[in-house]
């Protein structure tokens, strides 16, 4: 059970609270996972520092060529944000498929990263966008690639008992760039995925000039298919390229057997399907062909 529930009004106050209350304290944002962890006896913290009243953390905005998403921003807000829908559609799609509406109204995108689950849709979208997180500690703030935040399944390198993530940032997509998110699940809503894949590509002069492919849950953290992405560079942005890159991605991804998610063989084959579909859509977008972003 919890002994105290605190509402700091600034990041500094939050960090002071963490410091003052020692080991039993932790940051809570949406709390959608935390409440379950507590019921399952998996989270021993007894003092909650709720950051959802800290002003400044609620913003989604573009600054210095980056889109910034504050720690209070919920999945629903990401999914509905015109800025994100038009300039980072992959993330809007990903956040729009988390849980059900009620969970999306409460759960935060930052929380999706901090919980460090390799199936988290939002985190897969962020990984494809090569996002960074701003970590606030008493010693100061620093930007870290989100891929460095994973210490294992469910374990984040940012300890919610000592520090917090205040915001995320990633480059807004521009002309000649495209993105897409694909997901496979046992039901159409209110469910974690069997697999998900997010891709961001850039095309210039009839050739792929950049690519980033993120896949979950096939490893202890969001998996980045580097070989496939590297192979894509320089290729013509067509269906054959998407298919071949997807094959490479499937070769390197190592989904494991899971009683509820399915066999390794099936999931490996599905990595190929999802990545191919995502790449096909993203390449078409980047090449300025039809489709359009999630909102169009």
């Amino acid at each position: 059970m919890w002994d105290d529930y605190l509402f700091p009004h600034s990041v500094k106050e939050a960090l002071d609270m963490l410091e003052a209350r020692g080991a039993d304290v932790r940051i809570i944002a949406g709390g959608t996972d935390l409440a379950l962890q507590r019921q399952g006896g998996r989270n021993p913290a007894t003092v909650m520092v709720d950051i959802t009243r800290i002003s400044g953390l609620e913003r989604i905005e573009e600054r210095d060529g980056y889109i910034h998403v504050g720690a209070r921003v919920t999945h629903a807000q990401v999914a509905a944000s015109p800025l994100i829908r038009s300039r980072a559609g992959v993330l809007a799609e990903a956040c729009g498929s988390v849980g059900g509406p009620q969970i999306r109204n409460v759960g935060t995108l930052v929380g999706n990263v901090v919980n460090a689950l390799p199936a988290a849709d939002g985190a897969i979208g962020l990984t494809a966008l090569d996002a960074q997180a701003e970590v606030a500690e008493r010693t100061g703030r620093r930007w870290t690639p989100i891929s460095d935040l994973y210490a294992g399944v469910g374990r984040c390198t940012v300890d919610s008992c000592q520090a917090m993530i205040t915001q995320l940032r990633f480059k807004a997509l521009g002309d000649g760039e495209g993105d897409a998110f694909e997901r496979l699940a046992k039901r159409k809503a209110l469910i974690l995925p069997i697999l998900n894949a997010a891709v961001v590509v850039g095309v210039d002069g009839g050739a792929v000039k950049s690519a980033r492919i993120a896949i979950g849950p096939v490893a202890t953290k969001p998996f980045v298919a580097t070989d496939a992405a590297e192979w894509l560079i320089g290729q013509a942005p067509d269906a054959a390229a998407a298919a071949n890159a997807a094959k490479l991605a499937a070769q390197t991804a190592e989904p494991r057997y899971s009683l509820l998610r399915g066999s390794a063989e099936y999931r490996k084959s599905m990595v190929e399907v999802l990545v191919r579909r995502a790449l096909t859509r993203a390449l078409a977008l980047a090449s300025g062909e039809g489709g359009g972003h999630a909102d169009s």
Binding site: G100, K186, R187, K188, A189, L190, I191, L192, L260
Partner: peptide, 11 residues
Amino acid sequence: LADYYVPTVMD
């Protein structure tokens, strides 16, 4: 209920 999939309206 998270592992037992009763169809939602979307299904």
